[in-house]
């Protein structure tokens, strides 16, 4: 199979180049002095300065961050519950519908989800007077609905990997179900919850279509502002904004990645130690 390895390397290089060149170009041109985004006019950080002066963008970013933090948190709670139900509760009446409802938002075209949520909010307002108008609340509800589906998938797959007898053992040792959840299940699946939260946060921060439907006139999120600017053409301050966002994400994900691979290495080392210990134990047992 060695002969084929050049093909594998090539497909990796081409694939990752395709994924990363656009992002790299965004970053490079954010330091371009020229207003014509694609003509290099020397190095400059003036677009970052301009960005910091732009109240519209800053306001939208602040709104988006708050929405993302709240929705991600609610989505993790609901998604964890849903993941537990799917992974641990076995068959129950209405399970098929439930599982369908958790999968569908993942793939449902956003225009449909957005439209239907808006119509729901309008109808609810007519019937019960809540939510009065549209704004942050409706955006959060919409984002939770979308992102909890992702959290559910992550939690469910983590739970199916996890040895169920760990939970049974805790129960056998006298812990009640809710204690089992908080003392055993939660700590073990915590990394999955963290990545679920991060994913939900970025998805919420990024969503344009659904948000456009359910946002009220006074509540423009960052993607909505970007979209309206981008429609008019490329603009260098958007590049600067993109660079900031990409940097934050890259740092966050890299830290997580490095931590994970450190852990893996530590685990491998420990496994070797354990192997040695095993030999030692056999020896001592033979003597004792």
């Amino acid at each position: 199979m060695q002969g084929r390895s050049w093909f594998r390397t090539l497909s990796l290089i081409v694939g990752f180049a395709f994924l990363y060149i656009p992002i790299a170009s965004l970053i490079v041109y954010s330091f371009n002095a020229s207003k014509l985004v694609t003509v290099w006019g020397g190095f400059s950080t003036k677009w970052y300065g301009a960005l910091l002066q732009n109240d519209q963008i800053l306001g939208a970013a602040w709104l988006s961050l708050r929405v993302a933090a709240i929705s991600a948190t609610v989505a993790v709670v609901l998604g964890t519950l849903a993941g537990m139900v799917l992974a641990r509760f076995g068959p129950f009446k209405g399970r098929t519908l439930f599982s369908g409802l958790t999968t569908a938002p993942l793939v449902m075209p956003e225009v449909i989800t957005g439209l239907s949520l808006l119509l729901l909010f309008v109808t609810m307002e007519q019937l019960i007077g809540w939510p009065a108008g549209r704004g942050m609340t409706t955006i959060i509800i919409a984002h939770v609905t979308l992102t909890m589906a992702y959290v559910t998938v992550i939690v469910q797959s983590r739970l199916t990997q996890m040895d169920e007898s760990l939970e049974e053992a805790a129960m056998d040792l006298g812990a009640r179900p809710w204690k089992v959840f908080f003392l055993i299940t939660l700590p073990i699946i915590f990394p999955a919850l963290l990545s679920g939260w991060l994913l939900a946060f970025t998805l919420s921060l990024d969503d344009l279509v659904i948000t456009s439907f359910v946002a009220g006139p006074g509540s423009s999120t960052l993607p909505m502002v970007i979209f309206s600017k981008v429609r008019l053409g490329v603009s260098p301050d958007i590049n600067a904004l993109a660079t900031i966002l990409v940097t934050i994400v890259a740092i966050g994900v890299s830290i997580a990645g490095v931590a994970m691979s450190r852990q893996q290495k530590a685990r491998e080392r420990d496994a070797q130690m354990a192997l040695a210990a095993n030999q030692q134990m056999i020896e001592s047992l033979k003597k004792g």
Partner: peptide, 12 residues
């Protein structure tokens, strides 16, 4: 009390 086939020792 039970000793599990997989031991189920809490990893954390």
């Amino acid at each position: 009390n039970m000793m599990f086939q997989s031991y189920a020792v809490f990893p954390h």
